[in-house]
Simulated assay, not measured.
Amino acid sequence: MTSLTAPNTAAPPEEQVTPGRTRSTLARRLIPYGYLSPTVLLVVVLMVVPIVMVISYSFRDNVIVQENSVFAGFANYTKVLTDPDFLAALKNTAVFISVSTVAHLVLGLAFAMMLNTQLLSGVTKAIFRIVYILPWLFTIAVIAVIWRLLLDPSGVVNYVLRTLGVVQEGVNWLGDPDKALWAVTFVNIWSGYPFFMISLLAGLQGIPNDLYEAAAVDGTNWFQRFLHVTLPQLRPVIVSMAVLDLIWTSQQFALIWMTTGGGPLNATEMLSTYTYKQAFSEYEFATASAAAVIVLLLTMVLAFFYVRQQRER
């Protein structure tokens, strides 16, 4: 007689978690934070702490130069926003960054389209790429020295203009209040357009040829293809580069300081040079801190639009 036995349905014994295993699991979870900790520490020490200190300085008076500073509230901000030199620097910065960004975009797109065309041979494109990328290879210090020599009243630029009969005598491009701002803007355009050119060239090479072929079948000319195919495809790159260029150009200091120093007569005074002079020429560190916070807020507005555009993209 066969005996039937019920299957064993008892639950398996629970696995015991030993303290050693708990510590091992916790260690594995903390490993990523260990890798990030040096970077986080550097960011806190080199960025967060200085920003907090500058913000605190902007609400106090007689900071750094005196041991016991006093709370001044928004007095430093009022002083900065009503300072004619600050308003002149704000105006010059707006002109400087807007003209530079538009010129960077136009020149970069024009040169990128020329390097992307099928009308030129590979050797010709390689030569043009080397020539057009040269301004990007120099540091700001070298660029400032070169253009100070070129724009000198007895420099090469004036020599060429006199030879062509454009001017009768040497023009002091960096010393004339009516011409200095446009001169440094031109130098900034010359030194910055290669970055736009390379980025837009990469964008052009990523546009499928099928779109151009379909547009050609529809009977469009080259301008219509540029307007309805090229520009829409390049729009994400153009917007990203424009916002980044606005941020970078607004923080330009070395070029201005090494060419004109903000002069003559504050004709090329920028927010960066104004802040530097307040701190290290007049030793008004509280006013300089307030100006730096204002510049930070303006830059954060541009950064907000950049991040927003990247998310939409």
Rank of each mutant, 00 (worst) to 15 (best):
A288W: 06
Y35P: 01
P32Y: 12
F74A: 11
E282N: 11
V142F: 05
A216H: 12
F196D: 02
T18H: 09
G170T: 04
F86K: 01
S289M: 04
P264V: 05
T18E: 05
I64R: 01
T249S: 13
L246T: 06
L107W: 12
R313Y: 03
H228P: 01
L151T: 02
S98Y: 09
A112V: 11
H104Y: 12
L150C: 01
L298C: 13
L120N: 03
A242E: 05
T39L: 14
L302W: 00
L81C: 04
N116V: 08
T259G: 09
A254K: 06
N158L: 08
A215S: 15
N68D: 03
T2Q: 12
L211W: 09
F74L: 15
P177D: 10
S58P: 10
I198W: 03
Q16A: 11
S191C: 10
G206K: 03
M258T: 08
F86N: 02
V160D: 06
V45Q: 14
K91I: 10
I51W: 01
S199I: 15
I55P: 00
L26C: 02
P153M: 10
L201M: 11
T287A: 08
F226R: 01
S289V: 01
R148T: 13
E67M: 09
S250E: 06
V145T: 11
P232R: 14
L41F: 15
M197N: 07
N116C: 05
S56W: 05
V40M: 14
S69R: 01
S56P: 00
D178E: 15
Y33I: 14
T25G: 12
H228W: 13
S240P: 00
Y159A: 15
D83F: 03
G203K: 09
Q224L: 07
V52T: 11
L246N: 11
R235D: 13
L231G: 04
A180L: 10
T82G: 10
Y159G: 14
A103V: 09
V157P: 03
S100V: 14
W257C: 01
T287P: 06
S154G: 09
F196Q: 09
T93E: 06
A27F: 13
R308F: 14
L161Y: 05
L244W: 04
M114E: 05
V307I: 08
N92Y: 13
Q66C: 00
T2M: 08
V43I: 15
D210F: 06
H104F: 14
P236G: 13
G108E: 04
T117M: 08
I207Q: 02
R308Y: 11
G203R: 10
Y77M: 04
A144G: 05
F285Y: 15
A202M: 13
L161C: 06
V49I: 15
